[in-house]
Write a protein that binds this DNA or RNA. Structure first.
Length: 978
RNA sequence: GCACGGGUGGCGAAAUUGGUAGACGCACUACCUUGAGGUGGUAGCGCCCAUUUGGGUAUGGAGGUUCGAGUCCUCUCCCGUGCACCA
């Protein structure tokens, strides 16, 4: 692609005028569609994604673009490295903030959103991002939400969307139901109001059906680590454990496309050449020697080491010791047929064979890990054991906690009353081992059974009063752990403990949660802190059934069972399943994760595409009628009645039933804000498709997102919802991967100069437009990346920006010196070192050190003083992703007609990185006393002698006995004296 | 309470992963340039003592391993984030 020629190029500006330069190039890039991603699928792809913004009325502050700058740098680098890059941007504009803003300013949310989007776009554009705006999406666009509705319908058809009337979280200010994920400390995440529990008709998505997969896939690995083969050679008690490193030599004959193996005549199994590494040998040397000794082949050419020594390991029995072998594979290709006599004893029971790749059959081959190494022949990164999800450990942990899996027993306590003969109370416990210690059973006050039991309760009034009192208490007060627990006994109700047929009383108490487990617990006050507190308060019996070293009650650890009949003396940890079975219970898995409350009683959201028909019940809107467009309303004030404002628009609500054509009414609830963002990354792959949400070929090509950059605050909301929808779409064949985002990268917040969160409230907001006007977009970009580690929260500091500005100005000035045609050899090393470091740092999100490396390079170039055009071009290229405008300007001033941003990324020459001399530090007893330059390959003995002769060193060794001298080549010499 | 992350100059931070602690940048100081200004140039800059050459000390604190620790181990203090009666 060539840039349009322009007369402006001839006028070379003498001073660095950022405003003119940046405007000029932004215009040209757009005119030339430099960053438009085509639909071809034959190049290697790279999909890098930002969490798209929610366009609020306030516009962007200086912290928002930080992540976008990072993705911009990486996408530009990848493009220069020849990748087919997808780097899109769009807007997430449904939901409460837009609607509340609209209510406040009395403008229609659509108008407000349009205005805000325009503002955001303009703010993003002046920063020079390389977004492909032809793929822009907006979640409020009917062409987009058509597919959000389509996904909902698929969920509905698979039974994963259901109607419920359970009490849900209700925000009285925003007048809408909320999902569990929208609650922070019992308050509405949006407005901070205390949340109430309110029974309401809701649409709920069955995310819990996916809980197990959402959890286990966090730890999924791309390639399975070879298992310990300890079945063949079990660990031998009392024998020492010995570790040994071995090599597997894989020899391939490219002429016949076969692999060299050894067949054991006696046992029939095959193996590649295996051997131990002898002292001082390299793995390659060892493998080569083994091939020669065992097969006689000598004409083999080393190609590659496939895998580190700890990748494959297995037990093997060896002379009465437990041996773990850490295997490393070395890959050779055969270059000739010469064979030498085998080493002694090698030919008696083995045969040499050449076999096809298909014959590497696990089970038949001794080398269980071979298939992994063979994969690696195609792809050097394959076969490495790495997590499928390259996500920060902290986010994975947050999701694990949020899903909250626990295994335990479901146990039934029979109700001891003739009127409830077949009824029982089902409890969930992770400690069935303490069943003999149960002294009462507790139900949540909201438990459905309580109402039924009222007829046999003697203290009916007391119980009813208690239930209504609890109902009045807000969620936050009730879940306050410091609050004293309260409860009341259901007098007259007794249940039978299935392990000992004992009758125990039943209580209701506020410390039992209705929506976890079964809403009922067996109380074991001796071994549970909460039960202990409660039992002490109400003087209920406490019976110890587990004993440990320190058995102060409550004793919540595992130990030995006592007072447990035939189970006495058993270890409590081991006996759980056995006691569960004995009690007639079942072993079950429970999750903290709740189903996703998917209804909002508000206007500004995707209409749920369902129709309620008196005859047919709930009917899906036919897919060809999608989208169900959000109708115009005169008032979009929330009603607070549990119906959305849409309910008032009768000519929209009343509709013929698609099945029976009878009278039907549209569903008037709308979807939550999270709906549109749960799949948007798929739409970018194929944004204008009106036949499907994404074309299969495009999806297969672009999936998964290679890198996803955004704030950590989305760990448990957006990122769980998106994973859920993605897995569902995988199940119905819409997407080809089980996870949407391969790598996830956090952006650390930029705080205000006062160290507080940047907010209008604190008056510490810095507007990027102002910074761009004063210093330029390039300076802002460099500064934000140079501030510190990318994922770290750092305070903004306007006075520090000048450093980045000076840096760019110095590059500008340097261009005047870059006139030579001949490379300056004095700069070879620094330039190639810089290429290496900058390339690696960009890949690892270490932008701060990448920039400091460029600064160091510039310092050295200034010291040397003369640089060739070519060398300066290399420096410009390395800087181009960070400062795209000024580098483009200087690049074109050098006479280039094609954009620097599509020029090939520099490649370093490893030979130029090799140091010929090195500084040796001399320490005496660990303290640095002297240093000297030597040739890298200087002999150890020479180094030692030189160090000992140094006058600086002699000062400290005089009169002392030298006990030893440690010489670390290329590093230091440490002299230890008495 | 539990889980995760983090404590290095006046400030933001580096540290080849166990090998010269403080790269790079800001601020500061002195000088140069300029009529003036700084978004110009040069030099200095952890702390303490000697100030020239040097010495001591130092990565929240206390121990330990090691020839050698910011880095590994044990304990402890502080800060941040998330979850929080989940049976």
């Amino acid at each position: 692609m060539y840039m349009k020629q322009s007369s402006e190029n001839s006028e070379i500006p003498q001073a660095y005028e950022h405003a003119a330069i940046e405007k000029k190039w932004q215009k040209k890039w757009a005119e030339n569609a430099l960053y438009t991603t085509d639909t071809s699928t034959n190049k290697e792809k790279y999909y890098i994604l930002d969490m798209f913004p929610y366009p609020s009325g306030e516009g962007l502050h200086v912290g928002h673009p930080k992540g976008y700058i990072a993705t911009d740098i990486i996408s530009r680098t990848k493009r220069m490295q020849g990748k087919h890059v997808l780097h899109p941007m769009g807007f997430d504009a449904f939901g409460l903030p837009a609607e509340n803003y609209a209510l406040k300013t009395k403008t229609h949310p659509r108008i407000a959103v349009e205005k805000n989007v325009a503002r955001y776009k303009q703010q993003l554009e002046i920063l020079g991002f390389d977004y492909d705006w032809s793929r822009e999406i907006n979640t409020t666009d009917p062409d987009y939400y058509r597919w959000t509705q389509w996904i909902f319908l698929q969920l509905f058809k698979k039974g994963l969307a259901y109607e419920s009337n359970e009490p849900i979280n209700w925000c009285p200010v925003d007048k809408t139901g909320l999902a569990n994920e929208d609650i922070e400390n019992g308050r509405c995440e949006r407005c901070g109001t205390l949340v109430e529990k309110k029974p309401m008709r809701q649409w709920v998505l069955k995310i819990t059906d996916y809980a197990e997969r959402l959890l286990t896939d966090l730890d999924a690995t791309d390639y399975v680590r070879p298992k310990l083969i300890d079945k063949v050679n079990p660990h031998q008690e009392g024998k020492p454990l010995v570790e040994r490193t071995v090599v597997h030599a894989i020899v391939f004959d490219p002429k016949n496309k076969k692999y060299l193996i050894i067949r054991n005549k006696k046992f029939g199994w095959d193996t590649v050449v295996i051997g131990g590494i002898e002292g001082g040998e390299s793995p390659v040397d060892a493998a080569r020697r083994e091939v020669r000794e065992e097969t006689g082949y000598t004409d083999i050419e080393f190609k590659r080491i496939m895998g580190g020594p700890t990748e494959a390991h297995y037990y093997t029995k060896h002379k009465g010791e437990n041996r773990i072998a850490y295997a490393q594979a070395v890959y050779f290709e055969l270059t000739g047929d010469t064979r030498v006599p085998l080493a002694e004893g090698e030919d008696s029971h083995d045969e040499i064979h050449w076999i096809d790749e298909e014959d590497f059959i696990p089970g038949k081959m001794v080398n269980s890990e071979l298939h992994i190494w063979l994969e690696r022949l195609q792809d050097p990164t394959a076969g490495q054991v790495k997590p499928a999800l390259d996500w920060p450990a902290s986010i994975k942990e947050l999701q694990r906690n949020w899903i909250g899996r626990s295994e335990g027993a479901s146990i039934r306590f029979k109700i001891q009353d003739s009127r409830f003969k077949n009824k029982d109370i089902e409890v969930f416990t992770t400690r069935p081992d303490t069943l003999f210690g149960v002294t009462y059973v507790v139900l949540a006050p909201e438990h459905a059974l309580v109402k039924e039991l009222l007829e046999i309760i003697s203290n009916k009034k007391e119980v009813q009063d208690y239930i209504s009192r609890v109902a009045d208490v807000t969620e936050i007060e009730r879940t306050d752990t410091t609050k004293e627990k309260t409860g009341v006994e259901l007098k007259g109700v007794m249940v039978i403990n299935p392990v000992n047929q004992e009758e125990v009383p039943v209580w209701i108490a506020d410390y039992v949660l209705a929506d976890y487990g079964t809403g009922a617990v067996m109380a074991v006050p001796a071994h549970d802190e909460r039960d202990h507190v409660f039992a002490t308060k109400y003087t209920l019996p406490i019976r110890q059934v587990v004993e440990g070293i320190n058995s102060t009650l409550p004793f919540t650890d595992h130990g030995k069972l006592i007072n447990s009949a035939q189970f006495d003396g058993k270890k409590s940890f081991d006996i759980k399943k056995e006691i569960t079975e004995y009690a007639g219970g079942t072993w079950v898995t429970k999750y903290k994760l709740r189903d996703w409350v998917f209804s909002r009683q508000r206007y500004w959201g995707e209409p749920i595409p369902l129709i309620h028909c008196e005859k047919c019940g709930v009917v899906a809107v036919p897919e060809h009628e999608l989208p169900v467009k959000l109708p115009e309303v005169t008032s979009y004030e929330p009603t607070g009645t549990g119906e959305s404002p849409l309910a008032g628009i009768t000519d929209w609500v009343n509709v013929a039933c698609p099945t029976c054509s009878g009278a039907g009414k549209r569903e008037t609830n709308t979807m939550p804000q999270w709906a549109g963002s749960s799949w948007y990354y798929l739409r970018y792959m194929d944004p204008h498709n009106d036949k499907a949400l994404v074309d299969k070929t495009q999806e297969k090509y672009w999936s998964p997102v290679d890198v996803y950059v955004g704030g950590a605050e989305h760990a448990t909301r957006h990122l769980i919802y998106a994973r859920f929808w993605h897995k569902f779409l995988y199940d119905i064949g819409v997407v080809s991967t089980t996870e949407p985002f391969k790598k996830l990268q956090h952006v650390g917040l930029i705080m205000g100069e006062d160290g507080r969160k940047m907010s209008k409230r604190f008056g510490n907001v810095v507007n990027p437009d102002d910074i761009v006007a004063t210093y330029g977009a390039d300076t802002l970009r460099v500064y934000e990346m140079f501030m510190g580690p990318f994922d770290q929260q750092i305070a903004w500091n306007t006075s520090s920006i000048v450093g980045s500005r000076r840096f760019i100005e110095r590059v500008w000035k340097m261009s005047a010196q870059a006139t030579a045609d001949q490379d300056n050899t004095a700069l070879h090393k620094v330039i190639h070192r810089t290429i290496k470091k900058v390339t690696e740092d960009i890949d690892a999100f270490r932008f701060n050190t990448a920039i400091s490396t460029l600064m160091i390079a510039l310092n050295e170039i200034e010291t040397v003083g003369a640089i060739s055009k070519d060398q300066f071009g290399t420096v410009l290229k390395l800087l181009a992703p960070f400062a795209p405008h000024v580098t483009e300007e200087l690049w074109s001033m050098m006479g280039n007609t094609s954009s620097i941003h599509i020029s090939p990324w520099p490649v370093y020459d490893p030979h130029l990185l090799v140091d010929t001399t090195v500084t040796m530090v001399v320490q005496v007893n660990g303290k640095m006393r002297d240093s000297f330059e030597v040739a890298v390959d200087t002999d150890k003995a020479v180094l030692e002698q030189r160090a000992l002769e140094s006058p600086q060193v002699r000062k400290w060794t005089e009169g002392k006995t030298i006990e030893k001298v440690i010489v670390i080549p290329k590093r230091l010499i440490n002299i230890v004296t008495s």
